[in-house]
Simulated assay, not measured.
Amino acid sequence: MTTNTYVNTDKFIAGMTMKDEAELEHNNMALHACENPNHIVENRKKLATFLQCELSDFVCANQTHSDHFHRVTLENKGQGARQMDTAIADTDALYTYEPNLVLCSFTADCVPVIFYNETQNLIGVIHSGWQGTVKEVTLKLFEHLIQVEQCKPSDFHVQIGAALSQEKFEVDEDVYVKFKSLGYAEDFMYHNKDTDKYHIDNQLTVRRQCELAGISAEQIMIDQTCTFINQNGFSYRENKKSGRHLAFITRKSD
C-alpha cells in the first residue's frame, strides 16, 4: 500500500494514501466513487493495519464542497468507515481532541489539509476543492479554533497534501473571478493567452488562508506532488471515474 507519510512521531501519525496498481481498484479509498464497496473496505482495513488500529476507529464525512466543519467526539467513532450512509453529513472538515480516532478526508485533485496542535492535543482534516477554497473553509475552521476553542496560531502544524498543480488546474473566467474576489489570491493565478484559460494554485491559496488565520509560513508544509501528472495520483480532472486518496491523521493516547 503506497502512502505519503507526513508526520510519524510518538504522538501523531498523518499522511495520505496514494494510487497503487498492486491494490484493489488501485488503492481507491472512496465508497462514493468505486466499483465495489467491499474493495474499499479491504483497502481501508490495510490502512488501519498500517496505523495499528481498527477500521472502526475511522471517522469519515459526506463531503459536499461546503464550508461546514464538525467537532468529532467518541460518539462519531466509526461513522462512514464501512458504509456511506453513516458518514457525518454535509461536512468538509473534521477536528477532534479525542485520541485513537482516525480523521479522514477524500480527494482526487482537491487540496487536503491535515493539522495538529500538540499543546491542545487537537487534530483535524480539511477537504478544500476550489469551491471550498472560495468559501474559505480552511480560514473559517482555523478562526473557529482560535476564537472559540482558544487555540494559539503558533501551536498549529499544517500539512497541505498532494493536489492538482497550477499547471493542470485551468479554469474559465467565472472561477477566476471567484478567486479574485477573495482579495488575496491574485499572486496565485495567471492567464494563458493561447488558451484563454486561467491557471490557479489552489494549494498556495489555501496556505494563504492559513496565514490569514495567523499561522506562520514556517508551520505550513506543502506536498508538491501533482495528482494529475504523478503516476501515483488519482485525478478527477484526468478521469471522471477516478478513485480517491485518503488524507488521515490520528493522535495516539498517552
Rank of each mutant, 00 (worst) to 15 (best):
M1E: 08
D10I: 01
F12A: 02
I13C: 01
I13W: 06
A14D: 05
M16K: 12
T17E: 09
E25V: 03
N27C: 04
M29Y: 01
A30Q: 02
L31T: 05
N36T: 02
N36H: 01
I40P: 02
V41C: 10
V41F: 00
N43M: 01
K46Q: 07
K46F: 00
T49D: 15
C53Q: 00
S56A: 14
D57C: 04
F58P: 04
F58Y: 12
V59W: 06
A61N: 01
A61Y: 06
Q63N: 07
T64V: 15
H68E: 09
H70W: 00
K77W: 04
D85C: 14
T86V: 04
A87S: 15
I88C: 05
A89L: 12
D92Y: 02
D92R: 05
D92V: 07
Y97C: 03
N100I: 00
N100Q: 12
N100K: 05
V102E: 03
L103V: 00
F106G: 02
A108G: 03
A108M: 00
V113K: 06
I114C: 06
N117W: 10
T119Y: 05
Q120Y: 10
L122I: 05
L122W: 02
V125A: 12
V125N: 09
H127A: 15
W130D: 12
T133D: 13
K135L: 08
K135M: 06
K135T: 07
E136K: 12
V137L: 13
T138Y: 06
K140C: 07
K140H: 13
K140V: 04
L141V: 02
L141M: 13
F142G: 11
L145W: 03
I146V: 10
I146C: 08
Q147R: 11
V148R: 08
V148E: 12
V148P: 03
E149N: 11
Q150D: 14
Q150L: 14
K152Y: 11
P153D: 07
D155T: 01
H157E: 15
H157A: 14
V158I: 15
S165N: 01
E167D: 11
K168W: 09
F169D: 13
D172C: 09
D174M: 09
V175Q: 03
V175C: 11
Y176Q: 10
Y176N: 06
L182F: 07
A185H: 07
E186Y: 11
D187S: 14
Y190P: 02
D194E: 15
T195E: 15
D196A: 15
Y198D: 07
I200N: 11
L204C: 01
V206A: 03
R207L: 07
Q209R: 11
C210S: 07
L212F: 11
I215R: 06
I215P: 08
Q219H: 15
I220H: 07
T225K: 10
T225C: 09
Q231T: 10
N232S: 11
R237W: 14
E238N: 12
N239G: 00
K240W: 02
H245T: 09
L246E: 11
T250R: 05
S253E: 12
S253N: 14
